[in-house]
Amino acid sequence: MKIIKLNAIDSTNSFLKDLAKNSTLENFTVVATDNQTNGRGQQETTWQSKPFKNLTFSVFIRFKNLAIQHKKYLNFAISLAVFEVLSDEKLPKLFIKWPNDILSANKKICGILIENTFIGDRIKNTIVGIGLNVNQIDFSNAIKSVTSLKIETNKDYNLDFLLKKIISKIEEKVQLLNSEKFDDLEQGYLKFLFKKNTTTMFKDSNGNLFMGIISGISKDGKLQVTLEDDLIKEFGIKEISFA
């Protein structure tokens, strides 16, 4: 792996995307920064991180033959890679919240942003942005339900060591993806999916509340929820949230 370290940058995903446009990158090139000033998350949200306390980085991954129809397995692979590294640290109540947040003790500890480039019906490459709360213990009052490794374990972590461990695990999971071990990836993801098979209150995009049970992920990556009449309905990322 090639790691490019920057003192400060607005967004590692944006920087790496520009780099990929203007040069030929080695597979699994990483851009990491001690201070990300305008990190991006899902649904145009921002990722806030205290300088020198956390991991904020992006990874460039090139594919030879990954079909667009299999892109949900890419999400499974990346989510599982981060999850398994954190699981080694014995974090409490660790889950993957659809599509790819990592929770510990019902609080967000990691956010993932996946941005793909397509050629025809194939994924040419992807840039994976990861923000992981590591040694930060104080968060803005405006940011609710977040935690960090240090809060949960009362330990300080070496950021460089943790970064390399996550990248190695991503390489391992991408190898499963390239080998089309799709069932293994899906089973692993669903095993740790937050609120799966549990009756839960949801809110739709119109603000309506309803009860349902997460039953799986559709072929195109949507969340499948079984409703009270046993009807299974599928929801996109902007169409549903936990109430």
Score class of each variant (00 low, 15 high):
K219A: 13
D121Y: 03
K222D: 09
Q187Y: 06
S179K: 15
F192A: 02
I213E: 15
L94D: 11
E228Y: 02
K181W: 02
N100R: 10
F194K: 06
T147M: 10
G188F: 03
K107F: 04
G111H: 06
K191C: 01
D229Q: 03
F202A: 06
V174A: 00
E228V: 12
S104Q: 12
I109H: 01
T153L: 05
D220V: 08
L231F: 10
Q224M: 15
N100S: 11
K93N: 14
F192L: 00
I214A: 05
F139P: 01
I143S: 12
N125S: 13
N106D: 14
V134M: 08
V225K: 04
L227V: 05
E228A: 13
D138F: 11
T153E: 00
F182G: 00
G111M: 10
L227K: 15
K165F: 06
D220F: 01
E180M: 12
G216F: 02
T226A: 10
L193F: 02
G207M: 02
T126K: 06
N116H: 08
D160H: 05
D230I: 09
K169S: 15
K203P: 00
N208Q: 06
I143V: 15
K181P: 00
F192H: 15
S205M: 09
N133W: 05
N100Y: 09
K107G: 04
I127L: 11
N206K: 10
K222R: 15
M201D: 12
A105E: 14
N197Q: 13
D160R: 04
V146L: 03
S179F: 05
F118S: 07
I130P: 04
S218T: 12
Y157A: 01
A142M: 11
I114F: 07
F95Q: 03
K107H: 13
K150H: 03
V146D: 03
T200N: 08
I114H: 02
D184L: 13
S179I: 02
F139R: 04
N158H: 06
K97A: 06
K150L: 00
L176E: 08
L163T: 03
N106A: 11
S104Y: 08
D229G: 11
T126I: 07
L103F: 15
V146A: 10
N178T: 07
V128Q: 00
K144R: 14
S218V: 12
V128C: 07
I127W: 07
V128H: 01
N135D: 04
I170V: 14
T200A: 13
W98S: 02
N208A: 08
N106T: 04
N154I: 01
N133A: 10
M211K: 14
E180T: 14
K196E: 05
G207L: 07
G188E: 11
N178C: 14
L209C: 02
K169F: 09
I123E: 01
S215L: 08
S104F: 04
S145V: 00
N208I: 12
A142G: 11
K93I: 09
D156F: 11
L149W: 03
E172G: 00
L193I: 09
E115S: 07
N197M: 13
K196I: 15
F194I: 01
I96P: 04
R122D: 04
S140D: 14
F202Y: 15
